[in-house]
């Protein structure tokens, strides 16, 4: 086995072009499990942890943030809780302190599991994934980046360099179901983001389909309710019937399977409950924001 340890972006891209079979590793919290259990014996490993820029995040134009693929969950929680509250919430549910200290959203995208907790907040705010190679940089909406369970559009000579996500313009939520409060792969999960300036609601179902799934019909429905009732301005509570209908429409959008973690039926039901609750919590926060102002 070869061990490649590029020291900057250029070296990394050249290494990947020269060794397309090399498996990238950052936090190793997915890759090392595969290696330790001899599920894979790659010809080469490509360590990305020495590339300084991949660990950084910063502001692009206006409210857009560029977050390096190697920014850890611990960093997101400590440094981006205000700017990206939905992603920070999701990050807090990942594994344990040891896992959050090493694991990254870049690795979550690389693994492309429908249960990845970092993914629903990216879908709910229309994130884009930056893909880099010696041939150039391209940006792909996250919903087009992930193709299926553990499948993405990433080509052999490419690396994930960063993702772009707008700074939150309203309340965001993330909720996850599992047998305990830590160290669990989601049975199902739900991410929600209110975008008051655009009068939009972003959603994403996790772990109840082959990929994370945006509940487009439910978004259209609730945006209609908010607009027709003038609720963005009045900040009046959303009525119970509309909340329930939103939950039902999210449940209908799920495409769950039965597996060891839960049945499809349970997943469909519970993701509807999460949807209703997260909308209620986010809307309450939106309402309180003016009470305080």
């Amino acid at each position: 086995m070869e061990f490649l340890q590029p020291l900057d972006r250029k070296e990394a891209l050249e290494a990947k072009a020269a060794h397309p079979e090399a498996v990238p590793i950052f936090g190793g919290t997915d890759v090392m499990v595969e290696l330790n259990f001899a599920r894979t014996r790659p010809r080469a490993m490509l360590d990305l942890t020495r590339i300084p820029e991949i660990r950084e995040w910063g502001e692009e134009d206006g409210r857009l943030l560029r977050v390096g693929a190697g920014v850890t969950y611990a960093q997101i929680i400590a440094e981006l809780g205000n700017k990206l509250p939905g992603l920070a919430m999701a990050s807090r549910t990942v594994g344990s302190p040891q896992i959050r200290n090493r694991g990254t959203v870049g690795g979550n995208l690389g693994t492309a599991s429908p249960a990845g907790d970092g993914l629903p907040p990216l879908y709910a705010s229309d994130a884009e994934v930056e893909i880099d190679s010696t041939e150039g940089v391209r940006r792909v909406p996250v919903s087009e980046f992930i193709l299926g369970p553990k499948r993405s559009v990433l080509k052999e000579n490419e690396l994930i360099s960063a993702f772009y996500l707008p700074e939150a313009e309203g309340p965001q939520q993330y909720s996850k179901i599992g047998p305990r409060n830590a160290m669990v792969i989601a049975v199902c999960s739900f991410g929600l983001a209110l975008h008051p300036e655009r009068e939009k609601v972003g959603t994403c179902i996790g772990s109840a389909g082959p990929t994370p799934i945006r509940a487009g019909d439910a978004e259209d429905f609730i945006e209609g309710v908010l607009e027709e009732g003038g609720l963005w301005e009045s900040r009046v509570a959303i009525d119970e019937a509309a909340l329930r209908r939103f939950g039902e429409m999210v449940a209908a959008a799920a495409r769950p399977i039965d597996d060891v973690r839960g049945t499809g039926e349970y997943r469909r039901h519970s993701v509807g409950v999460l949807a209703k609750r997260t909308l209620m919590w986010a809307w309450d926060e939106y309402r309180e924001a003016t009470d305080a102002a």
Binding site: G28, V31, M32, Q98, N101, R102
Partner: peptide
């Protein structure tokens, strides 16, 4: 669990060369 550069990590998930 060990510290690597002051950060708590699972040493079973660190590839040897990453500790260089």
């Amino acid at each position: 669990s060990v510290y690597m550069d002051g950060i708590l990590v699972c040493s079973c998930l660190v590839l040897a060369g990453q500790a260089e």
